[in-house]
Computed example of a mutant assay.
Amino acid sequence: MVRMPTHVITGAGSGIGAAVAGRLSARGDDLVLLARDAARAAELAGRFPGARTLVGDLADPDRLSWAFSHQSQPERVDTLVHSAGVVDLAPVGDLTPRAWHHQLNVNLVAPAELTRLLLPQLRAARGQIVFVNSGSGLNTAPEWSAYGASKAGLKALADALRGEERPAGVRVTSVYPGRTRSPMQARVHQQEGAPYDPGRWIDPESVATTVVAALDLPRDAEIHDVTVRPGQ
């Protein structure tokens, strides 16, 4: 009997994370979806039949270890896809510590902690970690400082982790999408005071294609960094 790979995915409720989960579920892979609370877990389980869920609030990374200790964790993890994220636009002069902490916790500290907690399984499987980063992690525009800082930190995390885990056979990939149509993008446009035209931006399925291609790459190679931008 062929064993299907197990993927742990954050942010599977919408946007890129949902597109990746849908692709992997459709081909029969096993999914473990992170949810911030029990209600969200039930919603994800209903949306992706057969998927398992883990409850843990990325906004409170200090409690992820405690939360996981009270749940059944997957014995094997082939892939960890970090797709969850939050954004709160404001000039540096207007950003409060609370806004900074929220974005840094969800976008950077929680991925680091979740990775730490699942590294034993990933090492055993010679698995892969995918960080869905952002163009803001490479070049940050005005009013995007907190978000850009969290994503630049995420790049640093991925780069260091890649070197650390190479001897264990764990591959690490960073994907840097441009603006992608999603509920988050709609909120960004609202914060910018600009009309939102979903047709102008990348389809989440296009980014999911990139993520799945990185996962399916034969073991003789790995994708370190890939940038995805809206077409003309």
Rank of each mutant, 00 (worst) to 15 (best):
S150G: 03
E143R: 10
R52K: 14
A51C: 13
M184R: 08
V32I: 13
A51H: 08
A51M: 14
A213L: 05
I9Y: 06
G93D: 12
S174Q: 02
L64N: 05
R27W: 05
V92D: 03
H189V: 09
E113W: 04
W201I: 05
R179Y: 07
G148P: 02
G153K: 04
G127D: 09
D57N: 11
H82G: 03
Q71D: 07
L138N: 13
Q73P: 08
V228G: 00
A38L: 12
A213V: 00
P91V: 07
G93E: 07
A39V: 14
V87N: 08
P183K: 03
F68M: 13
A125R: 15
R229N: 12
R219K: 10
W201G: 00
T10Q: 02
V92A: 10
D216M: 02
E165S: 07
V87P: 01
A194Q: 13
D220N: 04
A214F: 04
S14L: 07
G50Y: 10
A152Q: 15
N133H: 04
G135I: 14
R181I: 12
S72K: 12
A12H: 04
A12G: 02
T227G: 01
S134V: 03
E43D: 11
A12V: 11
D30P: 12
V109G: 00
L34K: 02
A35Q: 00
A39I: 05
G148V: 07
F48L: 03
V20N: 01
Q71L: 08
P230D: 12
V81T: 09
R166I: 09
S83C: 13
V175G: 02
P177L: 04
V109D: 01
R3S: 10
V172M: 04
A194G: 05
Q71N: 05
I129Y: 00
V228K: 00
L122W: 04
A59K: 00
D197Y: 05
F48N: 05
H7L: 14
A124W: 04
A152W: 15
N139E: 15
A158W: 03
H224P: 11
N139W: 12
Y147S: 06
P195C: 03
R126N: 10
L157K: 06
H224L: 11
L95F: 03
M184N: 07
T53L: 06
G85Y: 02
A186C: 11
R3N: 14
P230R: 06
G163P: 02
S72D: 11
W144K: 02
W201T: 05
A214D: 01
A59Y: 05
E192V: 11
L217P: 10
D225E: 13
G50V: 13
G11H: 09
V20R: 00
A112P: 15
P111Y: 02
V87L: 05
P74E: 09
P5W: 02
L122K: 03
A45P: 12
E222L: 08
S72Q: 12
I9M: 03
S14I: 08
E222Q: 02
W100G: 07
D159V: 13
V8K: 00
M1E: 11
E75D: 14
P177T: 08
T115Y: 04
L44V: 06
W144F: 15
V87D: 02
A149N: 07
L24H: 10
L95V: 10
A208S: 13
L33Q: 01
T140Y: 01
A19S: 12
N139H: 13
